[in-house]
């Protein structure tokens, strides 16, 4: 612990309840610059809530979340959405692509929201689709894609803005093992190439094995955190 560089993302003693249901009870976690960390644990152990707190989607009831030295849990809403747009990439179990938009438009959207012109945004989006082997599907809508293709488009959308952290919540949860392997290879390869850190949530050990280390949650707290190899 002593000589490690300051973490890029850190959660300390996070507490969060939904009504009377406790989701986090003192969870702590650190992710270093460029580090890939898997969070595993039984269903209901608080993995998604932890990710939502770290990514600034949900505010914790107690504890602190810092990103690059800034207190994420204290940021006003407008600064928070700006941070999410510029520094974070997010990906879920089901792509959550916009059903009315084509694959390439889905990927181009975050760039256009950040002010990039449509033509440039589409070009960059196509490069990412190409990289993940789904360029041929660029004009298809999410409903016309296979599960694995949809997740690779979602991955392209998460990475197109060059985030420093990617938050991925069960990105392979709905896929068979070969499609899951393609998504994980794409995610890890792209993160390593760009130096992005990844917080990867999964209940699947074969997926967690793509990460540098594993952090296990039980009942809203960390049970066994391994030291990085």
């Amino acid at each position: 612990m002593s000589n490690r560089p300051a973490p890029l993302v850190a959660a300390r003693d996070l507490v969060k309840s939904y009504g009377r249901t406790p989701a986090l009870r003192g969870a702590c976690l650190e992710v270093g610059e460029g580090e890939i960390v898997a969070v595993t644990g039984a269903s209901g152990s608080g993995k998604s809530t932890l990710l939502h707190c770290l990514a600034g989607i949900v505010r914790p009831d107690g504890g602190t979340v810092t990103y690059d030295g800034k207190r994420v849990d204290l940021l006003p809403e407008d600064r928070l959405s700006e941070l999410r747009r510029t520094d974070f990439g997010v990906m879920f179990q089901f792509g959550q692509l916009i059903p009315e938009l084509t694959a390439v438009d889905n990927v181009a959207l975050p760039l256009m929201l950040a002010g990039t012109a449509r033509g440039t945004a589409q070009e960059r989006a196509e490069e990412w689709l190409e990289r993940f082997g789904v360029r041929e599907q660029k004009d298809l809508r999410p409903g016309e894609l296979s599960g694995g293709q949809e997740q690779r488009v979602a991955l392209a959308r998460a990475l197109v803005t060059g985030p420093r952290v990617v938050f991925a919540d069960e990105p392979t949860g709905a896929l068979d093992s070969l499609a899951g392997e393609q998504v994980m290879t794409a995610l890890v390869g792209a993160a390593r190439a760009s130096g992005a850190a990844v917080l990867l949530i999964t209940h699947d050990a074969t997926v967690a094995a793509y990460a540098d280390r594993e952090v296990r949650l039980r009942d809203g707290a960390v049970v066994g955190a391994e030291v990085p190899a």
Partner: peptide, 20 residues
């Protein structure tokens, strides 16, 4: 079991690195 899990995960990371 916790210690055994850590050893298994370590080996799984090696194998994953090997195959990818």
């Amino acid at each position: 079991l916790l210690a055994q899990r850590a050893a298994h995960m370590e080996r799984m990371r090696e194998l994953t690195a090997l195959k990818t």
